[in-house]
Nucleic acid binder design. Sequence first.
DNA 1: GTCTATAGTTGGATAGAC
DNA 2: GTCTATCCAACTATAGAC
Lengths: 233, 233
Amino acid sequence: MVEHLGKAPSSATPHRATKQRLLDAAELLFASHGFEGTSMRAITQAADTSLSAANYHFGSKQALLEAALVRRIEPVNRRRVEAIDALEKSSEGVVSVEALLEAFLRPGFEVQRESPEEGRRLREVAARFSADPHEIVSKLKFELFAPVMRRYLDALERALPDRTREDLALDFQFFLGVMIHVMSGKNVFSRDHADPMPYADETILDRMVSFATAGLRAGGVPRAPESTPGAGS
Amino acid sequence: MVEHLGKAPSSATPHRATKQRLLDAAELLFASHGFEGTSMRAITQAADTSLSAANYHFGSKQALLEAALVRRIEPVNRRRVEAIDALEKSSEGVVSVEALLEAFLRPGFEVQRESPEEGRRLREVAARFSADPHEIVSKLKFELFAPVMRRYLDALERALPDRTREDLALDFQFFLGVMIHVMSGKNVFSRDHADPMPYADETILDRMVSFATAGLRAGGVPRAPESTPGAGS
DNA sequence: GTCTATAGTTGGATAGAC
DNA sequence: GTCTATCCAACTATAGAC
């Protein structure tokens, strides 16, 4: 799908596909077995190549999986930042809570809409990525998400100026919990009553936004008990 | 703490502690490394015993970890069911959303209050338990949670009778996402802005309940678009 | 750039002494 | 009931031919 020149030699590199196949297999297996549960053997077998080829291209299991995760997650976070840039530019810095939460969620759903297959992969990888205990994964998670998080928390502080930052951070964590749990999809305590997620995608987005917006607006300790200028419902 | 007779021979079994040490070590390591990341060797080393002792007592890695997880999780779910029993008995079947969510959450916090050490362990184990991809863990998760979930969903249906069950199930999943994410604690995208969870325990419980109650009340498609008897705010 | 072959660890589980 | 010793499978990574 995506042509990338770069390390390619001067020829047309007729089979540059090996790296891609390795990344595809790596992300697929990581999504269903996590970091420790995914072996280089399983990856290379699924990619129809050899252990040595994988180590030639990536050097180690860690580097291969990091590359696969960054490839999938980083574009989504870039869209999240672009979305909030656009929002703040068009509204002089004050953006509603709904708009913020939707801007954070929508990039994932856009991927889903553009390509359901890629959307499914994104959800599966992101769910495992959020949950994996391995230190390498945690480190990468922090690197990829810290800037986005700071950006959205800043905006949230402007949207609800009578709340403390710590308070908003907690509510935003609640919101992230909702998102992560939804991404994990098939998951959790449901096999007879509530089968996976029986809703069209855009509906779930709206439901998450309305759920979390209500939660954010409901909660929290005001910044100062006596002098709230005027922003209290 | 808990005496259990049973397989013990007729003597006073002066060192029956090995099984307990194995369970303790297993849950500790599972909490920080997941199912696949936890080796029998690491468990037995932490429990200061041998591989053979572990296999003598439990037969396999799977059986040992299942026993450790059940021991920690099952009592909490029992309390959840007892709490909803009590609520429904004292209010003739109609319980408010707040009361339901609090009843679901409180058992975990009670453990925390009775023993902060046990509370910490519960949180860590439960967080990993909710997130672990391994099939054995998923199966156990379903077995332990399905009855509790059905019970709470039934009650929720009575508390918000103008909503469909599927709809309530989705909102309850959102609520579970919040809880799981909070239990995972240290976790997620925070290292400078919002350090772990800088709130007293009971405060977080209240915050979760108010967040999710507002979310549950805000959202959803009514059961029938035209004939809503009177429960629509 | 990709392969086969292999080095060197570490995994779960068992045998048999005590 | 607990140990040491061991089996065998699977793992990551590398060497060296092509």
